[in-house]
């Protein structure tokens, strides 16, 4: 049994295609990433998988249940953390958690083990209203609430957007721990560097999947030799490189530029490097 099976899903809003013919599968216990910029269609796809909206075409299954026919069964067994904070702002931390537990006929005590590592970080503030929490604490509370009924599949829509690099690392550490406890995780992000922490990823842009594979395999598919050129002044470096007819593409990456050549020449001075997921995404999305 696959945790998620999506076949030929399409969805349009007012005639504008948000998703076009999306198909993929997620294995049980997998950490699967859907990576792409805002507006690519990530949230639409999450809402279809969590039975909140209907696709125009195609079908989707979660734990072999159909998102249309069996929507009630799916809602019982998945956890969903939307991109926008959706807990009750005027309830306290513990009231929110109790409320979500009771919706699923369970108690906080029953599944405390699962949320312990995350929840204990906000437990000192358990009597504070959710609306008065900081961004990082809200995120931890939302994740605790999404986990409280021990879901078999956890859907996280952009949990790290706008979060600083240190907190992002911590969040991914939490996800890795949840995965070890047997929960399948489907997570979306606009941060390309997070791709490497997933077992497999789908790259999404303009409503289409550009490719699906493990991060290691994806970068092997980069079709050209990639070189890195360093320079002190990025605008000047870009100008110089663009003036060179043999340079096919040129994109800034931190303190250097990544380039590909039209014609590979012997003994060029450039340093060959391993492509990253971001290099591959740029290549595919052009």
């Amino acid at each position: 049994m696959k945790a998620v099976r999506v076949n030929n899903i399409s969805k349009a809003y007012k005639g504008k295609l948000a998703l076009e013919d999306i198909s993929f599968e997620v294995e049980k216990g997998e950490l699967f990433g859907i990576i792409g910029p805002d507006g690519a269609g990530k949230t639409t796809l999450f809402r279809i998988m969590t039975t909140l909206i209907l696709a125009d075409e195609g079908e989707a299954k979660v734990d072999d249940y159909d998102v249309v026919k069996d929507y009630k069964l799916i809602r019982e067994r998945v956890g969903y953390m939307p991109g926008r904070f959706s807990l009750y702002q005027d309830l306290t931390v513990i009231e929110n958690l109790d409320f979500f537990a009771s919706l699923f006929n369970t108690t906080v005590e029953e599944n405390y083990d699962l949320i312990k590592d995350i929840y204990k970080q906000i437990e000192p503030f358990k009597d504070r209203r959710a609306g008065a929490l900081s961004g990082g604490m809200k995120q931890k509370l939302a994740l605790s609430c999404a986990l409280i009924h021990k879901p078999s599949v956890l859907f996280l829509d952009e949990p790290t957007t706008g979060v600083d690099p240190v907190s992002r690392k911590e969040f991914w550490h939490m996800l890795k721990n949840l995965q070890k406890q047997g929960i399948t995780i489907v997570v979306s992000t606009p941060y390309m560097d997070e791709a490497n922490l997933c077992n497999r990823i789908a790259l999404i842009n303009n409503g289409e999947f550009l490719d699906i594979d493990s991060p290691q395999n994806l970068i092997k598919k980069f079709p050209k030799k990639l070189y890195s050129v360093e320079g002190d002044n990025m605008p000047k470096l870009l100008k110089t490189l663009r003036a060179n007819d043999n340079i096919e593409t040129c994109f800034s990456f931190g303190d250097c530029c990544h380039i590909t050549l039209n014609n590979e020449t012997k003994d060029n001075d450039y340093k060959e490097i391993q492509p990253s997921i971001e290099d591959y995404f740029i290549r595919l999305s052009k």
């Binding site: 805002d38 952009e158 957007t161 706008g162 990025m234 870009l238 994109f251 995404f281 740029i282």
Partner: peptide
Amino acid sequence: TGGVDPVVRRQFWELIY
């Protein structure tokens, strides 16, 4: 540039320069 795609993110920086 939060959430902006990698190509446009770089174009945005060229506007900054």
